[in-house]
């Protein structure tokens, strides 16, 4: 967070506090971020959507999303924004598998990632190396699109890419470095991976069954 401020003093930093009871909101605010606090915990997808709604309301041209646990290296923000500024893409994903290998997930996770990126690449007809990356940047059209009810609020990733593609947005991947989460806790633990697998397959299927929405 502090690094983002140092590297990009001209950007607005918005921190979504998803109902945390610790000092997160206060710390972020002191560091100079705009903090939006949920009254109670609603999960990752809802939190990022709150950020999109904020961006839409305040008329930002583009948005970069980073996870708050220090996984995503802010140095790459500029790299993610470049294709959007140039109008070459609507949606840019920072991929950990494009050269800058610095991150090795566990075997199960890796298998899951490979599985979904195969599916997504096949369905989109474009090579996607990291379909689960939360390091993303996108322009105003996509922000608007994501604030509607089409946005999948629990675990938005592979299905979201597919929905974007079907809505006619240009997706682009750029290399980005990622670190292991500072808290060491992943969203995917316990029984969650099974739910994730099920939800994602279902979500991908129904996205395909839906009428194209723009």
């Amino acid at each position: 967070m502090r690094r983002v401020r140092e590297l990009y003093p001209e950007h607005t930093v918005v921190v979504i506090d998803d109902g945390s009871r610790d000092e997160t909101a206060h710390v972020a605010q002191t560091a100079g971020a705009k903090v939006i606090s949920h009254s109670f915990n609603m999960g990752y997808g809802v939190a990022i959507q709150t950020g999109y709604k904020y961006a839409l309301r305040h008329g930002y041209d583009a948005l970069v999303q980073l996870d708050g646990d220090g996984q995503h290296d802010p140095v790459f923000i500029q790299k993610l924004l470049e294709p959007i500024g140039a109008g070459e893409a609507d949606f840019v994903v920072g991929s950990r598998f494009l050269g800058l290998e610095n991150y090795t997930p566990s075997l199960v996770r890796r298998a899951g990632m490979v599985f979904f990126r195969r599916i997504v690449s096949l369905l989109i007809g474009q090579r996607i190396t990291d379909s689960t990356s939360g390091f993303q940047a996108f322009n105003r059209q996509v922000i608007r699109y994501f604030t509607t009810e089409v946005f999948p609020c629990d675990y938005p990733d592979a299905d979201m890419l597919l929905a974007l593609h079907r809505a006619g947005y240009q997706i682009r991947e750029v290399p980005a470095r990622m670190y292991a989460s500072a808290t060491g806790k992943s969203m995917h633990r316990g029984w969650k991976p099974f739910y994730y697998l099920f939800k994602m397959l279902l979500s991908i299927s129904v996205t395909l069954l839906r009428e194209k929405q723009i």
């Binding site: 606090s37 109670f40 609603m42 009810e149």
Partner: peptide, 16 residues
């Protein structure tokens, strides 16, 4: 749940 989610988001945005 969808309506509550939207309300809570709205509430958070307004509070900020």
């Amino acid at each position: 749940s969808d309506q509550i989610k939207n309300l809570a988001q709205e509430n958070a945005l307004m509070r900020s």
